[in-house]
Amino acid sequence: MRIDFHTHIIPSHFPNFEEKYGGGKWPVLEQTCTCGATILVGGKNFREVTDQVWDPKRRIQDMDREGVDIQVLSPIPVTFSYWADPQEALQMAKIQNDFIAETVAEYPERFVGLGTVPMQDGKTAIQEMERCMNELNLHGIEIGTNVNGKNLDDPCFIEFFEMAEKWDVPIFIHPWETLGRERMPRHNFMYTVGMPSETALAAATLIWSGIMEKFPNLKICFAHGGGSFPYILPRLDQGWEVWPHLRLTNHPPSFYAKKFFFDSLNYDPLNLKFMMERFGHEKIFMGSDYPFLLREIDPGKVIDDTDGLNSEQKEAMLGGNAAKFLNIEKKKRGAVYASTNTGE
């Protein structure tokens, strides 16, 4: 069973929020042909996309060709719209959450869904998270690494994390609005340097602030193999040791880092082995970033190419770990899950 934890989807048609509400930061999907479109932000080309990003039948064709049994569908981060009025952003979130839920319901054996919530308003975010999990039967929530420049340890997010732990909601943290982006206008460094650094900052913030100590059962997965976080963890530990006056936790950062989960999107077996040694293979699951240019082809390639893995480790990282993280077995969704549970 191969589960691709990290894929993105968007409805092919949704209202033009720029015309409806004003403001120049709403993403607008402008179809250029039956098999392609442009995502515009502020009237400028943000990203060219193909029908892979909205057509489930096209996705299933790719999945069959690349050996993927299940995709976990999550929104494209540009649609988070944390900058907007919370009620307007809620409408954007609901359109996407409903679309993802409908896609999963149409193909329950091939897809699992994650929702999005307006993190700029805690109560609204919690309400939509509850709807995603209880009414739409989604399996988790995707959020950004910061919200309008506020790190995830800001007091306004505490209740959200508290309820996510209480309701056993898996959280997928994806980098967006990266630090230092004003210094990365060329070379697409926002994607290759900024996003890994942004992810590291988010992970370090959740640990150093004491959130992971306060909510020890909070389930969090970081995109892109955790970015640069796994490699700076010893430096974070050293800072904790030499600055005792800054400590907010009873243990060094590496203690809490073992609570995190990560997708496998780091492209290199050496990096994967490093992460296995640091966190354990149980904390890693396959993720490809389908269908974008930086994605791994075929999904799971870095796991397949890593020498010395036993069958238990490989099967866990290719699908078993994601199934446990997302509570797929508990929800018993579809015949494919039933066959997995019986070992068929």
Rank of each mutant, 00 (worst) to 15 (best):
G300R: 08
E135D: 13
H224A: 05
V336F: 10
K94S: 02
L206T: 07
W83H: 07
L293P: 01
A203N: 09
W54H: 06
I207S: 00
T340P: 09
E88V: 07
G67M: 15
P118V: 07
G42C: 11
N134H: 15
N266C: 13
A101M: 12
A37C: 08
D85Y: 06
W26N: 00
T116I: 13
M119C: 01
T249G: 03
L29W: 07
K273H: 04
R58S: 01
P291I: 06
P244G: 04
G210V: 11
P269C: 04
F261D: 02
F255A: 03
S228K: 14
I100M: 09
Q31K: 15
R110Y: 04
Y231P: 02
T38E: 14
G239S: 13
E277F: 05
F229M: 11
P230A: 02
I211K: 12
T116Q: 14
H187V: 14
I3V: 09
M286D: 00
E48C: 02
R181T: 06
P252Q: 10
K259L: 07
I173S: 00
G22Q: 08
V72L: 12
S228A: 13
E159I: 11
A84D: 08
S264F: 06
E213K: 15
M133K: 10
L73V: 10
K301I: 04
H139W: 13
F279K: 07
P196Y: 05
E88I: 07
A93C: 15
P86T: 04
